[in-house]
Design a binder for these strands. Structure first.
Length: 434
DNA sequence: TATCCACAGGAAATCAGGGTGT
DNA sequence: ACACCCTGATTTCCTGTGGATA
């Protein structure tokens, strides 16, 4: 088939030429990445000093104490530790300490934690992702630590340790890690836990808590003025001179300060604003791009989240969508979600029936992610249930769901349940009770 | 005031799918 | 081929419960 509309076609060559000719905004994008470790960390002097003091004895070959770092997301916990670890390494001529970073959200099971530690140190022989018994791995790890790390120190940084603690087997593996030193001849290990939940200690085995030390390093949230300092530092590296309007950084800082002073958020905003300006071929970043970035980031998060969850969870979300779409007045309760789920699962191949129990878990997960909100309410003789509300724009939800191959076909299906008189009757009673 | 609905949500078991060394 | 390992998703079994109703 001939293409008769060449003039309207996207000309990719021309686009690249224009792109190169266009205004340059970014000098070094990496400086706004969360993995970037800056030369200096503003407003973290106390924490740097604290960590430096705790880890300094590694220089003499002694075992540093284990400790915990607390602070909300984006308060610089990980960055500070990486910063100190760099500085510490610069001081060591020989006996360089090893640092193993473990994000417990990603490396999330006992087996994988051991394997991850082993594999980061070993480099040659890798431990397979599954298959072996844990105790074998543990013994192999002990051998490796003594032979490879030798007389040096190995720091094990457990990021998002709270997630690990709340899983089965989490306390056990932590306990094993705290006892590593007892089983080692030459090498010494030291644990550093990072958490953004202050109350996770409740679920922590007291033996682990005592070995992690009673005192913790606290990372307070940044206020707007501190955020401005951070942004100014990074902006100098990131952008070419003169591309930033003066009000951009204060605005980013203000937005992020509203969200418990999250520096990561502030940096994301700044980068997104830069990208938006770049995309519209503008050589100046003005505050209107920040406003736009704020809205975009919110949506990006939601879209990525929904894309990432399992199909069954997406289907649960679809049931909520269908109820909101066809009966906007309807009060959404968990029982109805169950009914409609079993109704529409027939329309999707290879989808099994879920139990109420499982659906209840999915509802909780969606609530945690901020997609919906749910409140348990007692309806007296009508039982106890969850009242569910969609917390995002239904248009947005629709557009995400319609991109999912197996779901897009049923977005116009009107559930039979919604038309049943029994449900309508119950709905009316519920409305009076609320 | 006792009852009883329709669930909530914890704990343990099960299943299937990815592996291992022998 | 066999016995056994680890994991994630799900089921099974279970006890608990707020408050309108009889």
């Amino acid at each position: 088939m001939k293409n008769h509309s060449n003039d309207h076609q996207f000309n990719i060559d021309k686009f690249y030429k224009n792109y190169l000719k266009g205004p340059r905004i970014f000098n070094n994008r990496d400086a706004l990445e969360s993995s970037y470790i800056p030369e200096e960390l503003p407003h973290r002097d106390i924490q740097i000093k604290d960590i430096a003091e705790k880890t300094a004895c590694a220089l003499l070959g002694d075992t540093p104490p284990s400790f915990l770092c607390y602070g909300m997301t984006g308060t610089g916990k990980t960055a500070t530790i990486r910063y100190v670890s760099q500085k510490l390494a610069q001081q060591c001529s020989e006996l360089k300490p090893w640092w193993v970073y473990i994000n417990c959200n990603i490396v999330s099971t006992p087996y994988r934690i051991l394997a991850h530690i082993y594999n980061t140190i070993s480099r040659e022989e890798k431990i397979p992702p599954t298959g072996l018994p844990k105790d074998i791995i543990f013994k192999k790890l002990l051998g490796l630590l003594d032979s490879k790390v030798g007389n040096s120190i190995c720091f094990l940084v457990l990021d998002e340790i709270d997630i690990l603690v709340n899983k089965k087997g989490g306390n056990e593996i932590l306990y094993d890690l705290t006892r590593l030193n007892e089983n080692l001849d030459k090498c010494k290990t030291s644990l550093i836990g990072i958490s953004n939940k202050l109350k996770f200690k409740e679920n922590l085995d007291p033996r682990i808590l005592s070995s992690l030390g009673e005192e913790h390093i606290v990372f307070p949230s940044y206020n707007a003025s501190e955020l401005r300092d951070i942004l100014n530092n990074r902006a100098k590296i990131t952008f070419h001179e003169g591309v930033l309007k003066e009000d951009v950084i204060p605005l980013c800082a203000a937005f992020a300060a509203k969200e418990h002073g999250d520096a990561r958020k502030a940096l994301q905003l700044l980068r997104k604003a830069g990208e938006l300006a770049e995309r519209s071929q503008n050589k100046i970043i003005s505050s209107k791009y920040v406003e736009k970035a704020q809205a975009d980031l919110e949506n990006d998060y939601i879209i990525e989240y929904i894309r990432g969850i399992p199909l069954q969870a997406q289907i649960i979300l679809t049931t909520i969508y269908l109820i909101s779409k066809f009966s906007p007045e309807h009060i959404i309760i968990s029982g109805d979600i169950y009914e409609i789920h079993s109704e529409i699962k027939r329309l999707i191949p290879n989808i099994r029936q879920l139990t109420k129990r499982r659906i209840s878990d999915y509802i909780n997960e969606l609530t945690l992610a901020g997609i919906i909100s749910a409140e348990v309410k007692s309806m007296g003789h009508y039982g106890r249930t969850k009242i569910i509300k969609l917390d995002i724009e239904i248009k947005l939800l629709e557009s995400v769901l319609s991109e999912i191959e197996k779901i897009k076909g049923i977005l116009n299906y009107k559930p039979i349940l919604l038309q049943s008189d029994k449900v309508k009757l119950k709905d009316n009673i519920f409305k009076k009770l609320i």
